[in-house]
Computed example of a mutant assay.
Amino acid sequence: MRNTITVRMADEMIAQIDALIAEQSGYVSRQEVVRHLVGRALAIEGGLPRAGKSAGGAARSVGEVQRAESDAAVPVQVG
């Protein structure tokens, strides 16, 4: 069973996602990037921000995931 969720994002976060897409070879959708980043965030010790964090805290989590991948010397390749 596939579930569907709708997520509102700040323009800055969408711009970060679009920048990540621009780095990929071939077509990658925003949905694929979001699924990839959420999966990576859940795999990082500590997981996602705790409930009650502001939208700004969530926006920083995308950067935290990218930094963690960068620190691990693992290139972000979606798809």
Rank of each mutant, 00 (worst) to 15 (best):
R40Q: 11
V34N: 01
G56L: 13
G56H: 12
G57M: 06
A58I: 01
G57N: 05
I44L: 14
E32Y: 01
L37D: 01
G39Y: 03
G46M: 06
L42T: 04
G39S: 15
H36I: 00
E32H: 06
S61C: 13
S54N: 08
E32K: 11
L37N: 02
A58N: 01
V33G: 03
A55K: 12
G52T: 07
K53D: 04
K53E: 11
G57E: 02
V34W: 04
S61Y: 05
A59Q: 01
L42P: 01
A51H: 08
R35S: 07
G52E: 05
H36Y: 15
A58W: 12
A51V: 07
G47K: 07
A58P: 00
I44Y: 07
V34T: 03
S61W: 09
H36V: 01
A51L: 14
R50Y: 10
A55N: 14
G46D: 02
A55M: 13
G56Q: 15
G56T: 13
V33P: 00
H36M: 05
A51I: 05
P49H: 08
A43C: 04
Q31V: 04
L48M: 11
I44W: 08
Q31N: 08
R60I: 03
G39R: 14
S54D: 11
E32L: 09
A55F: 09
A51P: 07
H36S: 09
S61V: 07
S54A: 15
S54K: 13
K53H: 14
V33S: 04
V34L: 11
A51E: 07
A58R: 08
A41T: 03
G52I: 04
A55I: 13
G47V: 07
A58G: 05
S61Q: 15
G56K: 14
H36L: 02
E45N: 12
L42K: 10
G52Q: 06
A43Q: 07
V33M: 05
A41S: 07
V38M: 14
R60T: 05
G52M: 08
S61N: 15
P49W: 09
R40G: 02
A59W: 00
L37Q: 02
R50W: 05
V33L: 02
V38E: 10
S54H: 13
R40S: 08
G47N: 08
S54I: 05
